[in-house]
Design a protein around this nucleic acid. Structure first.
Length: 417
RNA sequence: GGCAGAUUACCCGAGUGGCCAAAGGGGGCUGACUGUAAAUCAGCUGGCAUCGCCUUCACUGGUUCGAAUCCAGUAUCUGCCA
């Protein structure tokens, strides 16, 4: 289509800069708005990218995701590789076509699964794992490790049937090219908060070398599959809580031919803004920055303020399936008895489909009766809530009212009750 | 009418002399969930209270140092025979 351009259909343009309406522009804020252009449409940033791990946003139709304003969806290479197989999605015409989503798509590389399966326990990924001390208990309990990392890649055992598989940076790229998402992530190793500084350094070097291999393989595959729409590749910044490691990772990967960057790793909540800021200061300004796995309102404002452009998170749908719904006054549990006779919407004034048509009492009943539609309705509401929160933040940056909005929203959301 | 068997906490159900306020489910109440091994996981569920104390295993009365558990009677229910 555009033979003169290597990447004809992917671009990112910064549009407005975060500023403070109430004080002199002393601070050099990193926050910004922009537009990511992909072969399947634009993403106005900051944007929340909904997660559909196995090529479906759990319990929600793509049509509903479109209606609630989701701009893009993110699926997972590890899960789709195991089931149904990347070749199936390739034959289907790619992830978006397969799942009937005509907007932009992302795939994650499977790096997260290396960590979560390799650790052999789940507590380690919690942000407070360091203080919970839960991991040692699980190690003592002898839980099986499903993944083992070496410098070349990872051996996995499928969590579905125990089959042994090999992932390397090259294989992850091959899989993600078959999956066909507009944006994919380099294969990285995600460390935990409990790893030693020495291991963090070793792992970071591994992730750097893997990033180089991803770029090389990606270039080969892009050339070999030139009949397909261009797929952008984002490098993933690790380095845990260490400033020097984060900055080094940004400089190393920033010099490589990536289209954008993911900021990954297990983050302690209180360090999130600082870490994003380090990355924003080091990474090329004209490339988008995706913060992986974040969606709590305070984290979103903090990350946007410090220069993150996009986010993805399982939280809106996961907590929805266990009956938690977002309100401007915090996250509440709809299965609580107090909602049994509450015939109002989940949130007054919410423009989502669930709030337009159904009451708290009704959805409370559906949860009690274990009816599937309960998950659907609350997932729609929660996705809408987070998508709109980020949309509002974008508009507020454009208007110069970001800090007013932040104070208002977070003051109410986290007010003691 | 005769014979046999049952009756345990909100429900189902284990327990057949002390380790029993009583297993396990369900239900109920609550909490957690941040690149999804998650329609999952955890706690509580007789009462009051800090260890502890008090009242419970259909009811009444016994046996025993000690009873949900053994004995007798009563009530209700379920089979089979008339």
């Amino acid at each position: 289509m555009h033979p003169q351009s290597q990447k004809p259909s992917f671009s990112f343009a910064v549009e407005s800069r975060l500023r403070d309406s109430t004080s002199p522009p002393a601070a050099d804020f990193q926050g910004r708005t922009g537009t990511i252009t992909t072969p399947h449409g634009d993403i106005k940033t900051p944007a929340f990218i909904a997660v559909g791990t196995k090529a479906t946003v759990k319990a929600v139709l793509p049509e509903s995701m479109k209606e609630l304003g989701a701009q893009a969806l993110l699926a997972n290479a590890y899960h789709l590789f195991l089931q149904p197989g990347a070749d199936i999605l390739d034959e289907a015409g790619g992830l978006g076509k397969f799942m009937n989503w005509d907007g932009p798509t992302f795939t994650d590389s499977g790096g997260f699964q290396v960590m979560s399966l390799g650790a052999g326990f789940k507590k380690v990924i919690n942000m407070d794992a360091v203080t919970s001390g839960g991991a040692d208990d699980d190690v003592a309990a002898g839980k099986e490790r499903l993944a083992h990392v070496d410098d070349d890649g990872v051996w996995f055992k499928s969590h579905l049937n125990g089959d042994r598989h090999r992932f390397t940076p090259e294989i992850s790229m091959q899989i993600q090219h078959q999956l066909g998402a507009d944006i994919m992530f380099a294969f990285d190793e995600l460390t935990t908060l409990m790893n030693s500084r020495g291991y963090q350094e070793q792992s970071l070097e591994r992730t750097r070398l893997w990033a180089e291999r991803c770029v090389t393989e990606h270039d080969l595959l892009t050339a070999a599959r030139s009949h397909r729409p261009y797929q952008a590749l984002f490098g993933v910044i690790q380095g845990a809580q260490y400033e020097d490691l984060r900055r080094k990772a940004c400089r190393d990967l920033g010099a490589m031919d990536f289209d954008g960057f993911g900021i990954g790793g297990a983050l302690e909540k209180e360090n999130l803004g600082t870490i994003v800021r380090w990355c924003s200061e080091e990474l090329p300004e004209d490339k988008p920055r995706h913060l992986l796995g974040i969606s709590e309102p305070d984290d979103l404002f903090t990350a946007i303020e410090n220069g993150a452009d996009t986010f993805d998170c399982v939280s809106p749908t996961r907590v929805a399936r266990t009956s938690a719904f977002y309100t401007p006054d915090g996250r509440w549990n709809l299965s609580n008895a107090r909602f049994k006779r509450d015939f109002g919407p989940l949130v007054d004034g919410c423009d989502c489909y669930a709030c337009a048509h159904y009451s708290r009492a009704y959805i409370h009943h559906l949860f009690r009766a274990k009816e599937m539609v309960a998950s659907t309705l609350v997932s729609i509401h929660n996705e809408r809530f987070i998508v709109k929160l980020v949309d509002d933040a974008r508009l507020a940056i454009e208007d110069g009212t970001f800090f007013d909005l932040k104070a208002e929203v977070l003051g109410r959301y986290y007010a003691p009750r």
